[in-house]
Computed example of a mutant assay.
Amino acid sequence: MIIGSDAVVQNWPLFSTLKLGKRRPYWIEPLPSERRYPNPFWGYGFSDIIPTAMMSVSSQNSKYQKFSRYMLKRMGKSLKRLKYISVRDAWTKDMMLAAGPELSIDITPDPVFALNQNVGEKIPLEEDIRNRFVLPDKYVLIGMRTQILSIPFLEALNDAMRIEGKECVAFPIDGAMAFSHPFKHSISIPLSPLDWYALIKYSAGYVGSNMHPIVSSLANGVPCYSLDNWGSTNFWGKKENNASSKVFDILKQYGLENNWAQIENNVCNVTVNEIVKRLKEYPIEQVITISKVRYAKYEKMMQDIIESLFGR
């Protein structure tokens, strides 16, 4: 059994589900069982009889510092039954080491880093993508889960990109176009996963939310700037500056911490000039070199998983 890759090793104590509300002073966020330990994503209930490995899993910035000693001890027992464990961010590794300090845990790439090699010829060709979506010569994809950037901001960004010989294109996130825009070009939905990936692969840049567009950009040496919606929050709903964001963790591995701005209360305090500057100064060769190293680490992870489950 191979578990992952995704945010499958979450656990949220009761206090962390307590939220402030506008209509009522506070409320408790209901959570499904897959976001609380124990559940099958931890190998709970079967890993003692079925050889099990975790592949590039994530805790989605679960607040492990607040876990009880009893909870950490139980987690540690579950993790020790696994044949192999790898995680995709430092926060998750620290959480697991808090549960089992003697555990051997690697930080490994998200499998999207290997999509070019694993999917290969099934990825649409650039000419096909450009013809079907009627794209400008050089386009920068803008993708947001909500209206993080205003229409005037997006107009100014598009004007600045045009000076650089590029055109902004609205890009759907999470299967929807969730923001208004002034751009001439936009990508319609429904959109197949491979078309979605190819649109990023052949673009001149990506600016926006979520982790996988950033990973897809990095894997292809595409300049990117993250408007980051991830990271832990305190009781008051304010983002905590504790490096818990999985997107920040990935960009840090590339030395691209400056290509990142945090979203706070659905607002991102970044300037047009900053975005344009970071895309223009993007170290493409450095990113390509690091991505090759990450792919090699991915291959080693897959080999380690096979050997851990089936022996040499």
Rank of each mutant, 00 (worst) to 15 (best):
residue 237 G to K: 09
residue 235 F to T: 15
residue 271 T to D: 12
residue 43 G to W: 01
residue 126 E to L: 00
residue 125 L to H: 15
residue 274 E to S: 10
residue 46 F to V: 04
residue 222 V to C: 04
residue 25 P to I: 07
residue 226 S to Q: 09
residue 168 C to T: 08
residue 311 G to E: 01
residue 1 M to S: 14
residue 296 A to L: 13
residue 151 I to V: 13
residue 194 L to P: 05
residue 62 S to A: 13
residue 217 S to W: 09
residue 44 Y to I: 13
residue 283 P to M: 07
residue 144 M to H: 04
residue 137 D to N: 14
residue 285 E to Q: 14
residue 287 V to K: 01
residue 199 L to V: 12
residue 263 I to C: 01
residue 61 N to S: 15
residue 53 A to K: 00
residue 169 V to H: 05
residue 110 D to H: 02
residue 294 R to E: 08
residue 13 P to A: 02
residue 30 P to S: 06
residue 241 N to I: 07
residue 184 K to H: 11
residue 83 K to D: 05
residue 101 P to G: 01
residue 68 S to D: 08
residue 100 G to N: 13
residue 92 T to E: 01
residue 88 R to F: 00
residue 278 R to Q: 08
residue 306 I to D: 00
residue 243 A to N: 15
residue 159 D to C: 11
residue 11 N to K: 09
residue 194 L to Y: 03
residue 235 F to W: 11
residue 179 F to E: 06
residue 18 L to Q: 15
residue 47 S to D: 08
residue 113 F to M: 11
residue 5 S to D: 06
residue 189 I to E: 14
residue 194 L to V: 06
residue 258 N to S: 13
residue 104 S to N: 13
residue 139 Y to D: 03
residue 159 D to I: 14
residue 13 P to K: 02
residue 66 K to T: 14
residue 228 D to V: 10
residue 242 N to S: 12
residue 249 D to I: 03
residue 299 E to V: 08
residue 244 S to W: 06
residue 82 L to Y: 07
residue 307 E to W: 04
residue 222 V to L: 06
residue 62 S to D: 10
residue 133 F to Q: 10
residue 54 M to P: 02
residue 29 E to W: 05
residue 82 L to V: 06
residue 256 L to A: 01
residue 125 L to R: 15
residue 115 L to E: 04
residue 256 L to S: 02
residue 191 L to S: 14
residue 266 N to C: 12
residue 130 R to C: 00
residue 303 Q to T: 11
residue 115 L to S: 02
residue 5 S to C: 06
residue 248 F to I: 06
residue 187 I to K: 05
residue 142 I to F: 09
residue 11 N to I: 14
residue 96 M to Q: 05
residue 270 V to Y: 05
residue 30 P to Y: 04
residue 136 P to G: 03
residue 73 K to R: 12
residue 240 E to F: 04
residue 214 I to W: 06
residue 70 Y to T: 15
residue 84 Y to T: 11
residue 28 I to N: 02
residue 228 D to Y: 09
residue 50 I to A: 10
residue 35 R to Q: 05
residue 276 V to S: 00
residue 150 S to W: 03
residue 214 I to E: 03
residue 284 I to A: 10
residue 204 A to T: 13
residue 146 T to D: 13
residue 191 L to M: 12
residue 147 Q to K: 08
residue 235 F to M: 14
residue 26 Y to P: 00
residue 136 P to W: 02
residue 170 A to Q: 10
residue 55 M to N: 13
residue 82 L to K: 09
residue 183 F to L: 10
